[in-house]
Amino acid sequence: MNRIGVFGANGRMGLALIEAAHQNNHTELSAAYVRSSSPLLNIAVNQLNSAAPATINFSDERHVDNIDVLIDFTLAAGMREHLKIAVAQNIPMVIGTTGLNNDDMQLLQAAAKQIPIVFARNYSVGVNLLLNLVQTAATKFGDDLDIEIFEAHHRHKIDAPSGTALAIGEAIADAKGWVHDEVAVFDRSRIEKEKSQNEIGYSVLRGGDIVGEHTAYFATSGERLELTHKASSRMTFALGAVRAAAWLKNKPAGLYDMQDVLDLK
């Protein structure tokens, strides 16, 4: 049984991860970490989530012990500190933090030389199947093709486009033999020319409580293919992350993704 520790355990995803750890037959929640300044310190976790064992209280994120795998869906600044803890104690990590910059990715790659890490922008099984499908579409259509990606999330989401949208675009660019950052277009408000067919355009919606919707559009003259994934619950992502945690135990050091966990490569 894998002992799971969850960072940011009082957040929306943190609470979903607690429930997911309870549902998975191969994992058990062993620690729910919050900031050292949190008023929840030493409060029973099951007061916020009844799926948590009655014996577990919210604990200080600086004090990690007796854990097999750590899961982190916090913001980038928190992830950096948690990664240091994991490396210092040689504990595998599952990371779902989005909005990471190049420096953050270099930190992940350096840490993965010492511990096993699963990093994915989306832990949904459906989204990871979608990544395969968009690559097939990108290669089977000809060059006379317009490619666009649309995504929608709740009003509280900070990064835009979402990490998942970027992952879809990167998968398509890889299949087309393009360098993603050279073909991605995020703003056409000052572009006074027609769309190039050697680009991937992004559109974003933020509103209400939308959990997550992503669509890749492949448009040619006379037809259009739309590949869409819609998530109705954060449990979709939480269950995938806990599945990754169960898979990660005893793996050698390295940087893995959900495609590895699902054996889709």
Results as ranks from 00 to 15, higher is better:
residue 137 A to L: 13
residue 4 I to P: 05
residue 240 G to P: 15
residue 189 S to Y: 06
residue 239 L to V: 10
residue 104 D to A: 07
residue 76 A to F: 00
residue 168 I to C: 07
residue 123 Y to C: 10
residue 148 E to S: 15
residue 68 D to S: 07
residue 57 N to H: 12
residue 213 E to G: 03
residue 69 V to I: 13
residue 96 G to E: 07
residue 176 K to E: 03
residue 196 S to D: 08
residue 108 L to H: 05
residue 184 A to S: 08
residue 38 S to Y: 02
residue 114 Q to F: 05
residue 177 G to D: 09
residue 259 Q to D: 04
residue 43 I to E: 05
residue 90 N to W: 00
residue 155 R to Q: 15
residue 213 E to N: 13
residue 1 M to L: 12
residue 16 A to N: 14
residue 95 I to T: 01
residue 178 W to G: 04
residue 238 A to F: 13
residue 205 L to Y: 15
residue 256 Y to W: 07
residue 259 Q to E: 06
residue 3 R to V: 13
residue 72 D to E: 09
residue 244 A to Q: 02
residue 99 G to F: 09
residue 238 A to D: 07
residue 123 Y to L: 08
residue 211 V to Q: 06
residue 150 F to N: 01
residue 77 A to C: 07
residue 193 K to C: 11
residue 260 D to F: 07
residue 247 W to N: 02
residue 136 T to H: 15
residue 75 L to V: 14
residue 133 L to N: 04
residue 4 I to V: 11
residue 133 L to H: 10
residue 123 Y to S: 13
residue 78 G to T: 13
residue 149 I to C: 12
residue 181 D to I: 10
residue 8 G to P: 08
residue 163 G to V: 13
residue 115 I to P: 01
residue 18 I to Y: 04
residue 99 G to A: 09
residue 255 L to F: 01
residue 134 V to G: 03
residue 169 G to D: 07
residue 257 D to M: 01
residue 209 D to F: 06
residue 140 K to A: 03
residue 78 G to P: 07
residue 45 V to C: 02
residue 243 R to C: 02
residue 3 R to I: 08
residue 261 V to H: 07
residue 73 F to K: 05
residue 53 P to M: 08
residue 123 Y to K: 12
residue 6 V to N: 06
residue 86 A to M: 10
residue 129 L to Y: 11
residue 61 E to H: 14
residue 52 A to P: 03
residue 252 P to E: 01
